[in-house]
Simulated assay, not measured.
Amino acid sequence: MRPPERPDERTRQAMQWVLLATLPGIAVLLWLQGWAILINLLLAGGTALAAEALALGLRRRPVAPALMDGSALVSATLLAIALPPYCPWWLTVTASASALLFGKHLYGGLGKNPFNPAMLGYALVLVTFPGPMTHWSINHGMDLLGGLQSVFGIHLAGQPDAWATATALDALRINKSLTLDELFTSNPAFGHFGGKGSEWLNLAFLAGGAFLLRQKVFSWHAPLGMLGSLFVLSLLCWNGSGSDSHGSPLFHLLSGATMLGAFFIVTEPVSGARSPRARLLFGIGAGSLTYMIRTWGGYPDGVAFAVLLMNLAVPSLERLAARRVEEPTA
Rank of each mutant, 00 (worst) to 15 (best):
M1Y: 02
E5S: 13
E5K: 14
E9D: 15
R10Y: 08
T11V: 15
Q13M: 15
A14I: 05
M15N: 15
M15L: 09
Q16F: 14
Q16K: 15
L19N: 07
L20D: 12
V28S: 09
N40F: 01
G46S: 07
T47Q: 05
A51D: 04
G57H: 06
L58D: 09
V63C: 10
V63Y: 01
A64I: 14
L67E: 10
M68C: 09
G70M: 11
G70T: 10
S71A: 13
S75F: 06
S75E: 06
A76F: 02
P84D: 05
C87A: 12
V93H: 01
A99I: 07
A99W: 00
A99L: 02
L100I: 15
G103K: 06
K112E: 04
M119D: 04
A123Y: 02
V127I: 14
F129N: 08
P130I: 12
P130V: 13
G131K: 14
G131S: 13
P132N: 14
W136F: 09
D143S: 08
D143Y: 10
L144A: 06
L144I: 03
V151F: 03
V151Q: 11
L156G: 07
A157I: 05
A157Q: 10
A162G: 03
A168K: 04
I174L: 12
T179N: 08
D181I: 06
T185C: 05
H192I: 14
K196V: 06
E199Y: 11
W200V: 13
F205K: 07
L206C: 14
G208T: 11
F211W: 12
H221C: 09
A222V: 06
S229I: 01
C237H: 05
W238N: 12
W238Q: 08
S241C: 09
S243K: 05
S248C: 09
H252F: 05
G256Y: 00
T258D: 03
M259S: 08
A262H: 06
T267D: 12
E268N: 06
E268C: 03
S271W: 06
A273I: 01
P276M: 04
A278F: 00
I284E: 00
A286Q: 02
G287R: 02
S288Q: 00
M292Q: 11
I293E: 03
R294Q: 08
R294D: 10
W296Q: 10
P300D: 03
G302Q: 08
V303I: 14
V303H: 04
F305C: 06
A306D: 07
V307N: 12
V307W: 07
L308W: 04
L308E: 02
N311S: 11
A321V: 01
V325C: 00
E327K: 01
P328G: 06
